[in-house]
Structures are given as C-alpha cells and as structure tokens.
Design a protein around this nucleic acid. Structure first.
Length: 337
DNA sequence: GTAGGCGTCACTCGCTTTAT
DNA sequence: ATAAAGCGAGTGACGCCTAC
C-alpha cells in the first residue's frame, strides 16, 4: 500500500485549502493527485477514464478500471453538499458499467457507495472517510481503499470491511479514553500513585478497567500511532513483455516487488536457480501464470536488486543497473557505499 | 556509426556440508 | 573444531541487436 505517497499528497493538499475549491480544482489538484499517489496511472485512459457528460447527465466523472476491479467516481466542488441525486447518478452509472461500487467525493468527504445494499440511497453508503480525521487516519483509510492491488484482484469488499473495522476500533478506543481515563485519575489521586501508567496498571489489577482498556489508555492500542515507516524509493523495471514496480528501503537493504507487477514467463536455460525460486513462488500462489506473463499476487521481499530483477526477467540481471527510479536513474544512483 | 538495451557467462564471495 | 570442497547467488564484462 503506497501509504507514504498518499500521506504526502494529503499533507500537500491541506496546505492549499484556504478557500473551498470548485469542482475543477477538486478534480485536478485533489482527486487526480490522490489517485496518482495511491498508484493509479492517471495518464492511462484505460485505467483512469474521464467520461463526457451525456445529454441526460447520467454519467459519473470518471470510470476507474484496474485488473478485474472498477468503480465510478463522481466529483463535486468542495463547497457543494453531496445530495441524493449525486449518489443516484454515480450508482446508476456504476451498474451500467457492471460494477456495484461508486465513490462520490467533494475532495474533503469521500463516500463509498455499494449498489448491493438494500434501502434508500443513504443506506447504500458503505463507508465515509473525511479529510481532517484525527492524525493520518484519512490518508491511511484512503490508501487502503484506493490501493490498485486491491482493485487488480477485485478485493474491494474486503478493503471496505477492513476500513470499517478500523473506524469502529477508533470509535471504541475514543470511548474508552473518555470513560475510563477519569477512573484511572481517581485511583491515582486516591492512592497517591506517581504516574498515570502505574495507576492504569493498578486499575487493571483491581478490576476497575480491563487489560485491553489499560493498553488503549497507555497508547498501546491497535490503532495507536505507529512509528514512521522507513523511507522507500520507488523503482520500475520493464524487460520485454513484463512490467514490475519495486520499493527499495536503503536503511533496511530491502527490496520489495509490489503486488500487481508482472514477470516474464520464460526462464533462461542457464538460470536454473532463478527457475527453482520462481517455481516455489508459483506453487505458493504468490506468482500466477496467465499464459502470457507471471503476476505477483502480493508484495515479495528480496535482499538484493539482482534477485528481484532476475525473477522479473527470468534470467541473471545486474539489479543495480536495470531498476530505474521515477526520474529514470539507475539504482546505482541510490546505492550507499 | 553510435548509443543503449538485452542476453550470456565467468568470476567472486559467502554459506553449507563433509572429511579429518 | 577446523579445513576443504561444493554449491548457489550476485555482479560485472562483453558481445549482439536495434533504433536513431
């Protein structure tokens, strides 16, 4: 999941938002930017397809297609409140192009609509995420929803469920902080305990709060802020017939070939070792052979760029030369001595 | 003709296994 | 326990091919 890219885009966007922008601004500076940060190829009309409004006005603004997944995307200006007509238009269009999913956004609020839900348009809102949520939770939720690897495999329903669970967990933890913190403070004062941490521990042992509630109060909950992920550099490599994207973490000396990347089917006769390694990935279902290319079903870690390049190319490769960053520079450029 | 990409292969290094 | 042998992986050099 390209969380760091989405997080960076969200931070940049928030700096621009002095005045509520109109639809054109939302389209160019927010939606397309976030789609690109999430990993969609916004310059490829097969993937991010802008729709012309037809006579009846029943088309969404974009049709997003990736692998087996697709969704309709309807945009509004940020000053505009989202109305039933917007939802209906997006959902009708989604159904007409053979998908249950539509996303309606004014740039700030993102609503995921599921046509299969019973009830009126309001009941069809599967999820709502909003810029301005606490911390980086907006970027995190949006990165999960717009992850191209999720759409590639048509696993959006699971992604929605995951974000719903995280939202519920954040609500639960907020409730715990609101209701249980006074109890710990009371115990701390009554027994003259020096720190909140020790008081929370005591409250837990006394049965006034559960251990899980103690962990939430001490910031050890599942949705507690995580340490910053290590910096990663994005590389691509496209030997004949394949196209792979990899993240390089210099601080960890780690290479990760991203899910959705493709590798050549053929393995060179001399590269038996590469053949054996790829065979294991195929047997594990990590690589899938569609008769044309091998597709990575999930992220795969490598210790060296040559191993990653070898699996993609089906032959021995100098990874430091063949992987190129977004500016076209070889990986050598980022190599530390 | 030249530059760049690609394919092949040999060399080096490090790890594991085996023999003493 | 240590040395030797074997093996696999990573890298770089070199030649071929193609586009300009």
């Amino acid at each position: 999941m390209p969380f760091s890219e989405v997080q960076g885009a969200v931070q940049a966007i928030q700096r621009w938002l002095d005045e509520p922008p109109g639809e054109a601004f939302v389209r160019q500076c927010i939606v397309l930017r976030l789609l690109q940060a999430a990993g969609f190829d916004i310059w490829n009309p097969d993937e991010v397809h802008p729709e012309e409004t037809n006579v009846t006005g029943n088309r969404a603004d974009f049709l997003i297609r990736r692998g087996r997944g697709r969704f309709a995307l309807e945009l509004k200006g940020m000053g505009t409140s989202l109305q039933a007509r917007d939802y209906q238009q997006a959902l009708n269009y989604a159904v007409s192009v053979g998908t249950r999913w539509a996303i309606v956004t004014n740039g700030r609020v993102w609503l995921v609509l599921d046509e299969r839900r019973d009830g009126d348009w309001e009941a069809k809102i599967a999820l709502r995420v909003e810029m301005g949520q606490e911390g980086d939770t907006f970027a995190s939720d949006l990165a999960a929803l717009l992850d191209p690897a999720v759409w590639e495999r048509d696993h959006f329903a699971q992604a929605v469920e995951g974000v719903q669970q995280r939202q519920q967990q954040r609500k639960d933890e907020a409730r715990i902080r609101r209701d249980k913190k006074p109890i710990v403070e009371e115990i701390r004062q009554f027994y003259g305990i020096s720190t909140f941490e020790l008081a929370a521990d005591a409250a837990s042992k006394m049965g006034r709060i559960t251990e899980a509630e103690r962990d939430v109060l001490l910031g050890k909950g599942a949705s507690a802020p995580q340490p910053d992920p290590p910096e990663a550099i994005t590389f691509s490599y496209a030997p004949a017939g394949a196209r792979a994207t990899a993240l390089f973490f210099p601080s960890l000396s780690l290479w990760i070939v991203k899910a959705g990347s493709t590798a050549r089917r053929e393995v060179k006769a001399y590269a038996a070792a590469i053949g054996r390694r790829r065979e294991k990935l195929l047997q594990a279902g990590i690589l899938v052979d569609d008769g044309r290319v091998l597709t990575y079903q999930r992220d795969v870690e490598y210790r060296t760029p040559s191993a990653a390049a070898g699996d993609v190319a089906g032959g021995s490769k100098n990874g430091w030369d063949v992987w190129h960053d977004t500016l076209g520079r070889p990986a050598q450029h980022h190599r530390s001595e």
